[in-house]
Simulated assay, not measured.
Amino acid sequence: MKLRLFPQETAGLQALARMSDHILAGTQTLAELLGAGRTGFTPLTQSLRKQEAESTADFATLLTNMRTSFINPLPREDLYTLGQLLNETSEILTGAGELIELYVLDRTPTRISDQLEILARQAELTASAMKSLNDLDGLEDYWLEVLRLAKRAQHTHRVVVAELLESHSATTFTKYRSLSDQFAAASRQMRTVATQVGSIIVKES
């Protein structure tokens, strides 16, 4: 870690931490959605939209802080990239919830639940990491573990698609495939966040 001689603004890091918390909360809401009946879909989807809106507000706070702070804890381009990736992840999670509601997916295959479980673990690790960006030396294990989970998520996604294709009609396949694709996209996004953190670790060493 580079020696820093001047105090820095931490509001940007706090905004990133809040954004990662929204993602973790989003995975928890999606878990509730997968177990909810049809009457429970609408309020839970609204909760996802609220979490996404809060993430976007935190992203705006981050951008304002970057413009007005003389000394940032990390390079501005890295802060911006992390914020953008986290905010986009919240959008993907909202999209997944809307698919569950619109397609009335009240009997989700177990494998898709497995995808969400992996994603939730990535979100948990990411939330912890975003709170530790002022101490990069301890984040290498996070980086590697999220990459490992991303590979597992990719494999699970391939299995989901194969099993859906074998067991469902074309219409049902398309519906569940869309949800599975959303979870896979969110997992890849978490991997990109971890890769960005890895890049920061290398640059700041």
Rank of each mutant, 00 (worst) to 15 (best):
T172V: 12
R76A: 03
S20E: 00
L116R: 06
D114H: 14
Q154M: 13
A194D: 00
V193N: 10
R4D: 08
I23A: 07
D78K: 02
L133M: 03
H157M: 10
A153D: 00
S169G: 03
T172A: 13
K175W: 03
A25I: 07
L5T: 05
S169Y: 10
L24C: 02
L63D: 02
I92V: 13
R4F: 13
R4I: 15
A31Y: 01
R49G: 00
L85Y: 02
P43L: 10
L34R: 09
A57V: 05
L5Y: 10
N134H: 14
P7H: 01
R107K: 13
Y80T: 02
T81H: 12
T171A: 15
R152M: 12
S178T: 09
L144T: 10
F59R: 02
K151E: 14
I71H: 11
L63H: 04
E140D: 13
G12P: 00
Q154K: 13
Q196W: 08
T126E: 03
E145C: 04
Y176S: 00
P75Q: 05
D141R: 10
Q196L: 14
F6D: 06
T27F: 06
V160C: 11
T126I: 04
Q8N: 06
Q8G: 02
S169I: 05
A53T: 10
T89Q: 12
L79Q: 02
L179A: 00
G198Y: 03
S167A: 15
F173D: 02
A11V: 10
F173Q: 03
F70L: 15
V193G: 11
L119I: 09
S55D: 04
R107L: 09
M190V: 05
Q84K: 12
A120H: 00
V197K: 09
A185N: 13
D21A: 15
A129F: 04
A123Y: 06
M130N: 03
E204N: 07
E98S: 03
L74Q: 05
D21G: 07
K151N: 14
L136Y: 01
R177F: 01
S90Q: 06
